[in-house]
Amino acid sequence: MSRQRSEEMPHWPLHLFLLLMVGITLYPLLWVITIAFSGGQSLAIANLPADAGLADRLRAVVPWPEHVSTSNFRSLFADQPFARWLLNSAVVSAATTVLGVFLASTAAYAFSRFRFPGRRAGLMSFLVSQMFPGVLMMIPLYIIIVQWLGLGSSYIGLVLVYTVTAIPFCVWMMKGYFDTIPRELEESALIDGASQAMIFFRIVLPLAKPAVAVTALFSFMTAWNEYIQAATFMNKEEMYTAPVGLRFFVGGFSQQWGYFAAGSIIAAIPIMVLFMFLQKYLVSGLTAGAVKG
C-alpha cells in the first residue's frame, strides 16, 4: 500500500485547486442566502457610505447580512401565493420524471440490445430533435396543446411538453450506458429461462442504476428549472410554476431581490435534496462487480 502511494503525485496541489473551485462555486450561493436573510429587497449586501473605506468595501463583499431576518421567507408565504406555485412545480416535475424515465429506459434498452428495421432512423431522430430550436417549437406546440387539446393551464399539458423535451437526451445517455453493460448476464439469464421483461426489469435496470439516476435527475431538473414554456402554457395565476412566480419578483418594474432570493432558496432546496439522495447510485464498478462476481 505504501509503495503504491509513493507512485502517486502529492495531494496538496489537488486540494488547493479544489478549494479554489469550491470558493468560486459557493460564493454566488452564499450571496443569495445573504440577500434572502437581509430582510430587505436591495441587491447590495451592505449600504456603502459616500466615502467608503477599505473596511466598508470588505464588509460589502462578505456574504453575511447586516441584520439577520427571516421576514422575506415569512411574507413569501403569508403575502404571496408562493406555496401554490411550489406545489404546481412539484406535481409537474414528479410526473415528468416518472414518465420520462420509463419511456427513455425502455426505448434505450431496445436501441442498445436489439437490431431491428428503423433502429438507426429512430436513434438519429432523437439526436436531430435536440437541434430543433425551442422557439421554433413553441408557437406550434402552443396551438396543439392549448387550442387543439384544450390543455392550457393544466398539469397534463406541461408534463407532456416537458417529457418529450427530456426524452432524447435520456435515451442517448441510457443507450450509451446500456452498451457498456456486458451481454453475458442477459444471455445466461435467458438460458436460465428468464423472460425478456424479467431480464430488463430484474437485471438490466438494476445494473444501470447510475444511468437511471442521471436520467431521472435530468428529467426532474428539466421540468423544475423550465421557465419559458411554463410561462407560455400556464396562463392562470394559480397554475404558475415556481420559476414563473419567481420571475415576478425581479421582472418588470419590481426589483424585490429579497423575495426573489428567499424564493430561490426554497425552490432550489428540493432539487438539491433529490440530487443528494440519488448520489449513492453514482457509485463505481457496479457492472464490473456483477460480471466478476
Binding site: 426505448a107 431496445a110 436501441f111 436489439f114 429512430g122 430533435s129 396543439i144 411538453v161 417529457t163
Partner: peptide
Amino acid sequence: YTVPAMVGMILLV
C-alpha cells in the same frame, strides 16, 4: 419497447 417514446416524439416534437 420503443413505440411509447416514439409516439410522443412524433406527436409533440
